[in-house]
Amino acid sequence: MAQETQTRIRALATRRAFLTRFASGIFASLIVPAVASGVLDQVEAAPQEGAGPAPMPELPEGMNGQHPIERMLQDLQRALQKPVDQRRWAMVIDLRKCVGCYACTVACIAENKLPPGIAYRPVITETRGTYPNVSRRFIPRPCMQCENPPCVPVCPVRATWKRPDGIVVINYDQCIGCRYCITACPYAARSFDSGYFYSDFEGGLPQPYESLPSPEYGENRVRRKDTSPVGNVRKCHFCLHRIERGQLPACVLSCMGRATYFGDLNDPQSLVSELASRPNAFRLKEELGTEPKVFYLV
């Protein structure tokens, strides 16, 4: 509990620092009320279901720590011991292992209660060559959580920003839905929630699973017509609500090919640090200088 509060306060502090840096000049006075009213720090609020990281699940014992899930969970626990600004969450996707099953796509949709037309992690199929010399790979595309996120500076109302731990988040209550950030993201990782419901295509009455609160950002919002996140831009947030509780992102856990890894890049012992530093790691559109924190292995 204490740990949790501390994390939060620190997150807020860093956030303030960030603001002050940019809030020089004529706008400074205008920002204060927003911070004071708590609008901005809501996103960092504690995730649901009690506070603090959940205890490690009891797992089947592996030989020599080979269990990748076990290892990642331990990495997570270690990271959560550190202050938030010393974590740097990252994902590694091994394209040699991705079997193109879309489990991650749908796991994410189910986890975050995403409506029709929104997928934070579609899987792109890339086919090359002519018969019989063809090759194909599957490229899952979550948000890259760019170190230099082009989506952030364009937001006119500072509804989206990079957290100290590197995750680019969106405050749904602040976002005015201008969609400027969508155009700015070179990875098409941002989606506009136009307000569709599954029931629009199926019978018209709300489906139970779309009436449940979404755990995103630990806010437990129930999605309704005309209220946020409808009308907002949404994106992958590395399952912030799960990792803060010591759980792996839904897509990582579900992955049929065990192709997706997650952890703290600032921790040299973590699995992702190990994998991301391999010579066969690359990032999408590296030339743009966005410094994605999603690495692909080929």
Partner: peptide, 8 residues
């Protein structure tokens, strides 16, 4: 621990 798109 894995599950496919159908399962979910």
């Amino acid at each position: 621990g894995t599950v496919c798109a159908k399962g979910i």
